Computed example of a mutant assay.
Amino acid sequence: MDALTASLALLRLEGLGPGSYWQLVERFGSAFAALQQPPHTLTRKLPDRARTQLAEFQRTGLESELGQWAQAERQRCAEACIYLLHCDDDNYPALLKEIHRPPPVLYISGNPATLTLPQIAVVGARRASRAGLDNARDFSADLAAAGFAITSGLALGVDAAAHRGALKGAGKTVAVLGTGVDRIYPLRNGVLAEEILAADGAIVSELPLGSAPEAGNFPRRNRIISGLSLGILLVEAAVRSGSLITARLALEQNREVFAIPGSIHNPMSRGCHHMIKHGAHLVETSGDIVEQLGGLLSGMAQQPGLFEALPASTEEIPPHHRRLILALGGDPRSIEQLAEDTGGETGDLMASLLHLELEGLVEQLPGGYQLTGDGARTLGALADH
């Protein structure tokens, strides 16, 4: 029995997770050796059903429930063109192998070679602001165009924007799931998953085919996102969030952590500010990330970045819209504050804000308005003039 089949069989034991798997492998030397041990010598935490499964495997080998499931799983993957990668395989991602107790087996849909590219994880809030989504998309597009693969979790919000940005930059992107690779979650990102595969990217999971989106799967998923990557970019995050957990895991894994600062009035900026206080690098452009990583892809510094692109002509912006953009500045502002700052009437301001919102320069928040990423670049162009 090869190492992959033995690992699949051992992981199939009732009540056994990656932590218990590694305890057994570290104690007995291999998954196959662990499967040969008398049930009472393994751990008292194993449920009765696991002991029954193990005893049957030792009697009948591949004809047992565990053996048959492992073989059937390999067959299902082969038929669906899903690549199974064992942690002892030479092609297993080197950075991921360095983390504490990495996934014993990876399921990969798409191009496995994508996992050998230098990766940067981009994570953040599911309910991110328009500015946060713009930043996730534009940073990812810039980094992907430079040769980094963009890794994220295919969730709504920042994750999806990061994947789309990588595709926009004609680069590769890796989606790490908290479900089986054959069960895309959330469903509304199904088309995005197809686009990732069509662009020679990869969808990855450590979970068996058909695994459902259970809450406990996602913290496990997060350690893979950070473990695959040279560094992680935190775009927007609340102080208590899965994205912040991923950033903390990255620090524990000795990865570089980058965070985009935001308004002190935006709750989604507090997670980024928290990480900056605790060792994350404050970044304003994608070039900051490359510089901190030691110029791994130094050619990027010579090419124009998306963040250097300014509106074609600020002369086309009417004076009353200019005043409004300058008044919005970097922080969310209420309609009352904008009226006071610009001297405009509320009705006229509402009409102007609606126009700027349709142009993609402004977004509405509870209690006010703020500039989007494109709006912030327009503000920079106006300030320069």
Rank of each mutant, 00 (worst) to 15 (best):
residue 88 D to M: 07
residue 174 V to L: 03
residue 238 A to M: 05
residue 14 E to A: 12
residue 241 S to I: 05
residue 96 L to P: 00
residue 189 N to K: 08
residue 384 D to T: 01
residue 364 Q to R: 15
residue 344 G to L: 13
residue 306 L to D: 13
residue 245 I to Y: 00
residue 175 A to R: 02
residue 275 M to Y: 08
residue 229 S to D: 11
residue 136 A to K: 03
residue 308 E to R: 12
residue 206 E to P: 13
residue 267 P to S: 05
residue 329 G to S: 07
residue 345 E to G: 12
residue 101 R to G: 02
residue 118 P to W: 02
residue 216 G to M: 02
residue 167 L to A: 06
residue 127 R to P: 00
residue 116 T to F: 05
residue 195 E to K: 15
residue 70 A to E: 02
residue 311 P to H: 11
residue 313 S to H: 06
residue 26 E to T: 00
residue 79 E to W: 02
residue 233 L to R: 10
residue 256 E to Q: 15
residue 323 R to H: 08
residue 98 E to T: 10
residue 226 S to T: 12
residue 305 G to F: 05
residue 317 I to V: 15
residue 312 A to K: 09
residue 367 G to A: 01
residue 184 I to V: 13
residue 274 H to E: 11
residue 259 A to H: 09
residue 263 S to G: 09
residue 140 S to L: 02
residue 262 G to S: 11
residue 76 R to V: 00
residue 270 R to I: 04
residue 17 G to T: 06
residue 236 E to Q: 15
residue 199 A to L: 08
residue 223 R to V: 04
residue 278 H to R: 09
residue 216 G to L: 03
residue 301 A to M: 15
residue 281 H to L: 10
residue 208 P to C: 05
residue 292 Q to M: 08
residue 156 L to Y: 05
residue 70 A to P: 00
residue 233 L to A: 12
residue 146 A to L: 07
residue 116 T to M: 07
residue 66 L to S: 11
residue 21 Y to R: 00
residue 308 E to Y: 04
residue 264 I to Q: 10
residue 127 R to I: 01
residue 331 D to V: 10
residue 212 A to I: 01
residue 145 A to D: 12
residue 124 G to C: 04
residue 139 F to E: 14
residue 325 I to E: 05
residue 262 G to A: 08
residue 327 A to R: 03
residue 134 D to F: 04
residue 137 R to Y: 09
residue 335 I to M: 13
residue 219 P to D: 07
residue 382 L to R: 04
residue 3 A to I: 00
residue 211 S to L: 07
residue 284 E to F: 15
residue 71 Q to L: 15
residue 357 E to H: 03
residue 97 K to H: 15
residue 312 A to D: 10
residue 256 E to W: 06
residue 79 E to P: 01
residue 148 F to V: 09
residue 262 G to H: 06
residue 47 P to K: 15
residue 288 D to N: 14
residue 230 L to T: 10
residue 254 N to E: 12
residue 89 D to A: 14
residue 46 L to Y: 09
residue 333 R to E: 14
residue 311 P to L: 06
residue 119 Q to I: 01
residue 330 G to Q: 04
residue 73 E to N: 04
residue 256 E to S: 14
residue 228 L to F: 11
residue 261 P to Q: 11
residue 52 T to H: 13
residue 174 V to D: 01
residue 46 L to C: 15
residue 119 Q to Y: 00
residue 59 R to S: 14
residue 146 A to S: 11
residue 15 G to T: 06
residue 100 H to V: 13
residue 210 G to Y: 13
residue 305 G to H: 14
residue 37 Q to N: 03
residue 141 A to E: 12
residue 319 P to Q: 07
residue 385 H to N: 09
residue 58 Q to V: 04
residue 248 R to D: 12
residue 1 M to W: 07
residue 38 P to I: 11
residue 228 L to S: 03
residue 92 Y to W: 07
residue 178 G to Q: 05
residue 263 S to E: 02
residue 204 V to I: 13
residue 39 P to D: 08
residue 219 P to V: 01
residue 236 E to T: 08
residue 311 P to R: 12
residue 133 L to G: 09
residue 58 Q to W: 09
residue 192 L to G: 03
residue 149 A to V: 07
residue 372 T to H: 01
residue 80 A to V: 00
residue 214 E to R: 13
residue 8 L to E: 05
residue 317 I to C: 05
residue 207 L to T: 08
residue 2 D to P: 07
residue 222 N to G: 14
residue 120 I to S: 04
residue 220 R to H: 11
residue 218 F to G: 03
residue 155 A to P: 06
residue 252 E to T: 04
residue 13 L to R: 11
residue 308 E to V: 05
residue 70 A to I: 03
residue 143 L to N: 09
residue 183 R to Y: 08
